[in-house]
């Protein structure tokens, strides 16, 4: 009787441990397999997979997933891709993966004409001129991102041309303005 009871207890403990292990695997799957970046040329499928992964323990790899999605979208450039990325970033904000500001800035960095590198509330003389070369470097990098987002992903040559033109004009006007502002105030 005692022996039978001991077997039953041991069996229950073992079953409990196994259930625990399986449950743990379900919520925190090993990263090698669960956080595999999406493959294949289909953007919608890649976005679906990314959403699932990012909701189930891979949120720390958001940037990698986003970059992979950009890369997949390059394989099939079309204007509709803008909407897909916009929806994805809105979803990421709703899921708490990104703040609203981060979502806006990320979208505009790749798919907007204006430069998030130029966001600022103080005057050009005060804010931009003391770090003019740094601002221009940021804009330069952002132009490369716009090339990817607008040109290579959205096939929107017109918007990319406007962004590129804006870069040139901003560079010229900032150069003159900072020269006129004189040494840092």
């Amino acid at each position: 009787m005692n022996r039978h009871h001991r077997f039953r207890t041991t069996g229950l403990i073992a079953a409990g441990v196994m259930t625990g292990i399986l449950a743990a695997c379900g919520s925190n799957p090993p990263q090698d397999t669960a956080c595999m970046l999406p493959e294949g040329p289909n953007l919608d499928r890649a976005i679906s997979q990314s959403r699932f992964d990012l909701k189930t323990g891979c949120e720390h790899r958001f940037d990698s997933y986003f970059k992979r999605l950009l890369s997949i979208a390059e394989g099939d450039p079309k204007p509709e891709n803008k909407a897909s990325f916009s929806e994805f970033l809105i979803w990421a904000n709703e899921e708490g993966l990104l703040s609203k500001r981060q979502a806006r800035e990320t979208y505009n960095r790749y798919f907007g004409i204006k430069y998030v590198s130029l966001i600022g509330d103080y005057s050009v003389c005060t804010q931009t001129c003391p770090q003019q070369s740094e601002v221009m470097r940021d804009m330069d990098r952002e132009l490369a991102d716009k090339e990817q987002g607008l040109l290579k992903i959205s096939a929107d040559r017109r918007s990319y041309h406007r962004a590129s033109r804006l870069y040139q004009e901003a560079e010229l006007v900032l150069e003159a303005t900072c020269e006129a502002c004189g040494p840092a105030e």
């Binding site: 204006k114 430069y115 005057s123 050009v124 003389c125 001129c129 601002v135 406007r162 901003a170 303005t177």
Partner: peptide, 20 residues
Amino acid sequence: RIRKELGHKKTPWSLQELLL
């Protein structure tokens, strides 16, 4: 004029909006 109108009156964001 540039210092006053663009350097002091404009933020970097409003400057790019002006250009756009």
